[in-house]
């Protein structure tokens, strides 16, 4: 199921949560949706999940608008941190609900994940710890095997080892049952390897949409003596500059071709990779 977003806008009274966003998502890939708090990630995802309607523009899934569309809505799962303080249903009961309403649900796989996350089947959900509730959400999301599965900061509350289990299981299952996964996060550094493509939004606008591989090779950090670095980076897009004494380190965004790389080496400059985390921080922190 392909997702096609065109000039999508969302306004709450005077506030523009999403501004003219356009991009396409192909099925079978894992997308990282990055943005700072309040950037509009959840607004975008809730339109995708038919929780709300956009003010302007279009969003189609498989060529159709998802809102109140039974076929599409059935294929989209939106996993976010829910308030379970009143949920007296047991873990087992939650699984039964998903089994009843999600046609691709895999019970065996769900039970496997339950064991993997060490979730108690007979405990009411509101009595689970925050981390366990997150693990349950993730279990329901993965085992539902919906063609479009959205994890909106679903890792909140999980400790690091549990998050690792989540990432591993997600990759394993994606390899066996490819679907469109959208992972929204600001924990960029530990999740970047999961993404096939990365979408960055900032203050309601699309900043970039690139393949992760391309993106990773897109930037570089150039380190060396200040005058040589300055000389080298003329005409390049600078993301960040750090200077210590006479040593300067500049992060640049844009392809470095072979000639440039050789040139840098000749000048005694060190060319290093930049992380998605760095890129993310610099792309979204400019206008403070």
């Amino acid at each position: 199921m392909n997702i096609d977003i065109n000039n999508l806008s969302l306004k709450y009274k005077d506030f523009e949560a999403l501004k003219n966003i356009s991009f396409k998502l192909e099925s079978g890939k894992i997308y990282g949706l990055l943005g700072r708090n309040g950037a509009g990630k959840t607004s975008l995802l809730s339109i995708l999940a038919s929780f709300r309607e956009q003010t302007d523009g279009s969003l189609t899934i498989d060529g159709e608008s998802p809102f109140e569309n039974a076929r599409i809505m059935q294929s989209v799962a939106f996993i976010y941190e829910k308030d379970y303080s009143d949920e007296t249903e047991k873990v087992k009961g939650m699984l039964e609900v998903i089994e009843r309403y999600r046609p691709n649900f895999d019970k065996e796989y769900a039970n496997y994940l339950i064991k993997r996350f060490k979730l108690p089947l007979d405990k009411p959900v509101h009595k689970l710890s925050k981390g366990m509730q997150s693990a349950l959400n993730v279990t329901l999301g993965l085992a539902g095997r919906t063609p479009i599965t959205i994890f909106d900061e679903a890792y909140l509350g999980m400790d690091a080892p549990t998050r690792e289990i989540f990432y591993k299981e997600l990759l394993d299952d994606q390899a066996k049952h490819p679907r469109t996964m959208i992972l929204s996060t600001h924990l960029v550094s530990e999740m970047d390897y999961l993404f096939d493509e990365v979408i960055v939004i900032n203050q309601g606008s699309l900043v970039l949409h690139e393949e992760y591989e391309t993106l990773a090779s897109r930037g570089a950090s150039i380190t060396g003596s200040a005058d040589k670095v300055d000389d080298f980076i003329i005409g390049m897009k600078q993301l960040n500059v750090q200077q210590l004494g006479n040593t300067k380190s500049v992060m640049v965004y844009g392809d470095l071709n072979e000639n440039e790389r050789q040139d840098a080496q000749l000048k005694g400059l060190e060319v290093g990779p930049i992380s998605l985390q760095d890129l993310f921080i610099h792309l979204t922190s400019e206008e403070d």
């Binding site: 038919s50 109140e68 569309n69 059935q74 799962a77 609900v97 998903i98």
Partner: peptide
């Protein structure tokens, strides 16, 4: 129910 992918109409 909307969470389970059910329309408001259903």
């Amino acid at each position: 129910y909307v969470n389970q992918g059910i329309t408001r109409k259903d």
